[in-house]
């Protein structure tokens, strides 16, 4: 007996899925903004010659790169609120987890980018009388950032895929909406297939943009770091 595919119940629930997609983009955007800023901070601390700055930064980066993001999410959602006595919504827990988690990966991208800049640039800046932070801000970072863009976009795409974990703590992202629609319509096959395709289209487009940007940077003679 062949299964009769029927997508109409799923299409009837399109508004739920659209809302889910918007929420997925919301959590991705939030975590990306905080993750990049925090990642730069962590990278600068880790590169600091002072041990009491570089060690804690290194510790945070290693812990968050080495443990599974789902464990981190559960910790921030179930354990942290009791520890500090605050209410934690699924969105806040997800935003905190994915910000720090992606920051530890962004930090390594920043670090590789900063270290890829030739020593001569530092020497030149110093010869012009710049202090360390001035040289970093005016000379090193602007050059490094351009080289980091491809690795950056790759991490951003990884981040978007990671945000699906937030469905496990009942935040209404696209995956959570899929769960809801499939239970409502008794059409798990069609629902999950449609949702997988939505993710594919969004992430595939983002990957293609990343590839184009990388090609352009490669043509303009900028090497890339990963």
């Amino acid at each position: 007996m062949a299964y009769q595919w029927d997508f109409s119940p799923v299409l009837a629930n399109a508004p739920l899925l659209v809302e889910g997609l918007v929420n997925t983009l919301r959590i991705t955007g939030t975590a990306l903004a905080f993750g990049v800023a925090l990642g730069l901070g962590l990278a600068l601390l880790r590169l600091s010659p002072r041990r009491f700055l570089s060690w804690p930064a290194g510790f945070v980066i290693e812990v968050f790169r080495t443990t599974p993001p789902l464990v981190q999410l559960f910790w921030f959602f179930f354990a942290l609120p009791i520890l500090v006595g605050i209410e934690m919504t699924p969105f806040v827990a997800g935003a905190v987890t994915f910000s720090i988690q992606s920051a530890s990966f962004f930090a390594e991208v920043f670090r590789a980018g900063i270290q890829s800049i030739e020593r001569g640039q530092w020497d030149g800046a110093r010869a012009l009388g710049m202090r360390h932070d001035q040289a970093m801000r005016r000379i090193i970072l602007p050059q490094a950032v351009k080289r980091m863009i491809p690795a950056f976009m790759e991490r951003a795409i990884e981040l978007m895929k990671t945000t699906t974990l937030i469905a496990t703590i009942s935040y209404a992202d696209l995956l959570f909406a899929a769960n809801e629609v499939s239970q409502k319509t008794f059409r798990p096959l069609e629902t999950y297939t449609v949702v997988a395709l939505i993710y594919f289209v969004v992430i595939f487009l983002a990957s293609q943009v990343a590839r184009l940007v990388e090609l352009r940077l490669a043509r303009s003679g900028e090497s890339t770091v990963h």
Binding site: A167, L175, P188, L189, A196, F200
Partner: peptide, 19 residues
């Protein structure tokens, strides 16, 4: 590569058995 692995797992668990 372009779909989240959690979506794949749930697809195999909830959707595939129907087929």
């Amino acid at each position: 590569r372009n779909t989240p692995v959690l979506v794949q797992i749930l697809w195999f668990y909830f959707a595939l058995p129907i087929l």
